[in-house]
């Protein structure tokens, strides 16, 4: 807890807070504790990386923050709202408007063009088709894909697909972007470009970015890094406290 308070920026608006989040998986008569009581606070506009070895619980924490999975105990607050108190319609609204998701596997809808993919969350949010298309076009231009808006995902490279996914995540001007291993399926340079783009969008739109990752390239641009080990937060560092040491990952 002390590491947290010293590392946290002062006097800023809270966007995510987890209190003692525990996640247990039952497998037969055994119980596996994937999260063993995680309490973290994230502030508006921060770029957070959740780092740790494979199986340490990054994705589990990430899913709890994103309202995708209910913790076994503990609480998750997004913008001061207790996620566990929300009904199905409110959760859907939260996922649609407050949070933008970026996936390791890109997850574009294969039957839709880039433009239609980016417009989809706006349409789910109740925006008129024409307005959604205009806005989708503008965001796609922002991620430098203005010339590929009518292509299907299968006609795009991995990096381009992830750009479309980023555009889609930003479609409804969310407060939080959640990215689980956004560079996991990309080569080094494409990964760098994607990280750079995420950082630029984070700065220019003031969006909070939370990313679970193995990717050490993320360290350079993160405001804070949460190091997770065996389901617990081992330490929280500000960027200037990080000494890049690949040994930490293994």
């Amino acid at each position: 807890m002390t590491a947290q308070t010293t590392a946290a920026p002062q006097g800023r608006e809270e966007i995510v807070r987890t209190i003692n989040v525990v996640k247990e998986y039952r497998m037969g008569d055994q119980t596996l504790q994937a999260l063993k009581g995680v309490s973290v606070t994230i502030y508006r506009g921060e770029y957070i990386s959740i780092m740790g070895p494979s199986g340490s619980g990054k994705s589990t924490l990430f899913n709890a923050i994103g309202g995708l999975d209910k913790p076994s105990s503990g609480k998750v607050f997004i913008d001061e709202v207790d996620v566990a108190q929300l009904d199905a319609l409110e959760l859907a609204w939260l996922r649609c408007r407050k949070i933008g998701y970026i996936f390791q596997t890109f997850n574009l809808i294969p039957v839709m063009t880039a433009l239609e993919n980016v417009a989809l969350p706006m349409i789910f949010g109740g925006m008129l088709e024409a307005d959604a298309r205009d806005k989708a076009k503008a965001i796609l231009e922002r991620v430098e894909l203005g010339h590929r808006i009518d292509n299907k995902p299968s006609q795009l490279s991995g990096g381009q697909q992830q750009r479309v996914a980023i555009a889609r995540a930003f479609a409804n001007d969310p407060a939080i972007i959640l990215a689980d291993e956004p560079t996991g399926n990309l080569d080094l340079n494409t990964g760098k470009a994607i990280i750079g783009l995420l950082k630029e969008m984070n700065r220019e739109r003031g969006v909070t970015v939370i990313s679970a990752t193995h990717d050490l390239k993320m360290l350079d641009i993160s405001d804070r890094i949460f190091w997770i080990r065996d389901g617990a937060v081992e330490k929280i560092q500000r960027r200037d406290e990080v000494t890049i040491d690949a040994g930490q990952m293994h």
Binding site: E80, E90, W93, L94, F124, G126
Partner: peptide, 21 residues
């Protein structure tokens, strides 16, 4: 467009899409 009505804190309810969509 039908606007969501009930709000919990800053959370609203998701709208139902028309069948045509």
């Amino acid at each position: 467009m039908n606007l969501p009505v009930k709000a919990v804190g800053q959370v609203q309810r998701q709208v139902q899409l028309p069948l045509s969509k």
